[in-house]
């Protein structure tokens, strides 16, 4: 096990609810926990347990009702929408279940997309994208469109897109949920490598206990609360 010293994510008394048809549905209730820098954690729990909501809050694409949520020392719950967008661009890498690649852009262009929000020159971007695609083993698929790639290859493009900006945390929502076992193994190995070799903190939501085994630790959510008996 690695030595995790500094908590990179500090969650205190986090509460989130949704309004649906006039009813308020509580999704997360008083969640508090830390994630250390360089940690690879899996968030598990049944459907509707609030694990994806928690991931969205940590990733800064949703806002809590109350509580504090510090990522890399910054309370992101207080950031304005525009600041939050800039913060995400610099600090978070996203990996989705269905890859979420832009179908009209090539693998290269998809990976380059987050870099368009940086001040990097075209040459610098090209250099980084080529390196990222070689790290995920897709050097020969640079000019392919997503529809020309297999599910596993598309997820590899998505992973390259996620780490291209060298973010502090990587959030993955069911990254293997749409893949066959071989491709899923491939993707999980890649996430482990990113964690081990590049020191990326990874928070992964998954249903799959097999996938969760790749993580250093597993947090279970049950009806919007951390299941402390099952950690």
């Amino acid at each position: 096990m690695e030595d995790f010293t500094e908590p990179i994510v500090q969650i205190r008394q986090l509460t989130k609810s949704y309004r649906r048809g006039g009813q308020i549905i509580s999704v997360l209730t008083n969640i508090s926990f830390d994630i250390n820098s360089g940690e690879f954690i899996a968030l598990m729990g049944p459907s509707g347990s609030g694990k994806s909501t928690l991931l969205n809050l940590i990733a800064g694409i949703d806002k809590p009702d109350s509580g504090s949520l510090k990522v890399n020392g910054r309370d992101i719950a207080t950031l304005s929408e525009a600041d939050l967008a800039d913060w995400r661009a610099a600090n978070v890498g996203f990996i989705f279940q269905f890859y979420n690649l832009m179908p009209v852009l090539t693998a290269f262009e998809n990976v380059e997309l987050p870099l368009l929000l940086t001040r990097l020159s075209r040459d610098q971007r090209q250099e980084r994208v080529e390196l990222a695609l070689s790290m995920v083993g897709l050097t020969d698929r640079v000019e392919h469109y997503p529809s020309e790639l297999s599910g596993g290859q598309q997820q590899r493009v998505a992973i390259a897109r996620a780490f291209i900006t060298d973010p502090v945390i990587l959030v993955a929502d069911e990254p293997t949920g749409d893949l066959d076992r071989a491709s899923a193994d491939d993707i999980l190995a890649m996430l482990q490598r990113l964690n081990r070799e590049m020191g990326k903190t990874i928070i992964m939501v998954t249903h799959d206990p097999y996938a969760a085994k790749s993580a250093h630790s597993i947090r279970h959510l049950e009806k919007g609360e951390l299941d402390v008996t099952n950690q």
Binding site: A85, R88, F96, N100, M102, L113, P114, L117
Partner: peptide, 14 residues
Amino acid sequence: ATEIGTMRALGFRR
């Protein structure tokens, strides 16, 4: 919609 959500998540502004 998904593409728009993805781009916003990646840091593109409204």
